[in-house]
Amino acid sequence: MTAGTSAVGSQESARASLDEAAVERAAAGVALRLPRSPHRGRLGDVRAASTGSSMELSDFRAYAPGDDVRQLDWNAVARTGELVLRVRHDEVAPRVEVVLDGSKSMAVSRVKASRAAEVAMLVCRVAARQGLEPSLVVTSRTPRRATGAACLTAARAAEADAADDLGAALRRSPPLRPSGLRVVVSDFLFEAPLDSFAALLSRGTSALVFVQLLDGEDADPGGGSGARLVDAETGEVLERMLAAPVLEAYRRRLAEHQALLRRAVARARGTLLTAVADDGLEALWRGALSPLWEPG
């Protein structure tokens, strides 16, 4: 695979190469692994963090004017002579929010751009099949949010054209909503403080998964000659001879960066999944992304 060596001019939209058939095949056989902690979302069949009208008892409290009198615990009233109200859990369909990185580094190769869109599309498709409420935030130059069936359309139209990194892009994107599960698809290759970045994304969600999608050249660059390295987002230039010591130093710095990212995600009680885009979607959902799905 040589896509990673493409020049600036070869950056293209991922729309043309999306393998939606593979997404549909994958979505048919998996279900999202939801956390056991209470969720937030619209009315459904999963116990919510908020109180509501399900059969599961949450607590007792004194009656206040305006409360539903049907929820009075008459036995307790008889025992105590006071109006005691049963407080029950609400039942919701949890929201699954997918954040797709729209920075230019996600389009250094066509396979990386299309694989990122496919992963986002797969999570949204699986969530919809489970009766959950999918929501997709794309942090491209013109950030946008889509919910429900519109997520697939948004994933198809996603452009990786933002000149800033994901941390900066989140500040100009639509605000993240409270959700049961938040999946962030990015390469996470930027120099922002990772702890605060992970903490920001963990806010208002019960579960957080970082899917780090790298191009083959990101993970294991080829060498042997001199190159003018151009940063995909800033356009900065660095001339290097890609000799073995230089490549080795790159791999070492990438590993250090990933270790930092992993620690930051763990502090935010999230999960980091690292995948290489060149592997194909089926290999990804069966392999690197398998912790996303319910076992079996």
Binding site: T5, D187, L189, E217, A227, R228, V230, L238, H257
Partner: peptide
């Protein structure tokens, strides 16, 4: 002399002693 090569993260290629490079 060399072909331009777009990379996702230039900071990983830079040794710590190297200063930031100017714009394009």
């Amino acid at each position: 002399r060399q072909r331009p090569r777009v990379v996702s993260a230039l900071f990983l290629w830079r040794s710590p002693s190297q200063r930031a490079q100017a714009g394009p």
